Computed example of a mutant assay.
Amino acid sequence: MKLDYKIIWVEDKIDTKPFLALRQTINEHLVNEFFNVQFETAEDFDEFKEKYEASETFDLIITDLNLNESHGSQVIDFVRDVKHIMTEIFFYSANSELSATNLVNSSRITFHQMDEASAYRELGASIMDLINLTISKFQNIVTMRGMIMQETSSLDLKMDNIVKAQLKNPKLSDEIKPVIENIFDNIFANAEEKYNKAKARKSKDIFRDNILFNSSQKIFALGEILKILKKENFSEDYSKEIILIRNQFAHAELMKNEDGKEYFKVKGEEVYFDENLCREIRKNIIKHVNNISGLESKLDSNA
C-alpha cells in the first residue's frame, strides 16, 4: 500500500442495493483518509482469479463463502497456496458456519458470521475495522518514510520534466528569458565552485546538473512558468508540503523515547508519526499529484 488502496470484493450479489451502499461507505472512508481508492468486484472464483492474475497488488480481499457454483474458500486457497501472498482477507457468510470451512492457511484472515438482525450494518463495521487496522500498520514510521521518499521522488521527476520542457519552449522564449537569467544569478550566489560552468550560460549544461539546477531553482522556475501560463501558482505550497517534508525525513534520525515510541529527530525537534500527521502527509501528496497531473494534461493539450 502506498497512496493507493486496492480492494477486490467477491460476492455473487455485489450489485444489489445493500452491497452498493457498503461499497460507497468504504470508498468515502478511504477517500477521507486521503487514499486513492481502487475497487474491483467479482461474482465468483473464476472472475476473481482472472482479475487477480491481472493485478496481484490488492491491499484487501473481501469474499463471501457461497459464490453461486464456487466458494470463498477457493479464493483464499488460491491466494495463499498458489500465489503464496499474505494479503489481508475478510471472509464472511450469512448462512454457513465459517469455522467448519477447511482452509490451506487461515493466518491474516478476519472471519465474520453475519447476523440476520443487523447483518449489513455489522458486516460494514467489521470490514471498516479491518481497513483501519491495515491503515494503522501502513502508518508505521519506517513504512511512511519509505512512502514519502518514493512518492515525492516521483513527483519531483514529473515536475522536473515539466519545468525543463517549458524553459526550452520556443513559444515562451521571450517571457522565459528573465526566468533563466534569475536562475543563473542564483547559481552565481549559491554555487561559487561551479562559477566557470555557470558563466558560460549554456542552458543545456545547467539543466543536466542537479547541483546547479537544484530543487530551489526548479521550484522558482515552476512558479514563474505557472504565472506565464496564467495557471494557479502552487509552487510555494509544493516547496513546503513536498520538498521540505522529503528533505526533513530523508536526513532525519530515527530514535526511541523512554516509552519505546519511535520518532524522527528533525533539526533538534522530535517528530512523531501519529494518525493526524500521516493523514496530512497523504493529503498533501495527493493534492500535488493532482496539481502536477493537471498541469501535464493542460500542457499536452496545448502542445
Rank of each mutant, 00 (worst) to 15 (best):
Y5I: 07
I7P: 00
I8N: 00
I8W: 00
I8G: 00
E11R: 03
D12W: 05
D12F: 06
I14Q: 07
I14L: 11
I14E: 01
T16K: 13
K17Y: 09
K17A: 14
P18N: 08
F19K: 12
F19C: 07
F19P: 01
F19D: 08
L20P: 02
L20N: 11
A21Q: 11
A21V: 10
L22P: 00
T25P: 00
T25E: 13
I26N: 06
I26H: 03
N27A: 09
N27D: 12
H29K: 14
L30M: 11
E33H: 12
F35S: 02
N36P: 01
V37A: 07
Q38C: 09
Q38V: 14
F39P: 02
F39K: 07
E40I: 05
E40Y: 07
E40G: 07
T41H: 08
T41Y: 07
T41F: 03
D44A: 09
F45P: 04
D46P: 01
E47G: 05
F48P: 00
F48S: 03
K49Q: 15
K49C: 09
E50T: 12
E50Q: 14
K51F: 04
Y52I: 08
Y52Q: 07
Y52N: 08
Y52F: 15
E53Q: 11
A54F: 08
A54L: 13
A54M: 12
S55T: 11
E56H: 08
T57Q: 13
F58T: 02
F58E: 02
L60A: 04
L60C: 05
L60R: 01
I62N: 02
T63Y: 02
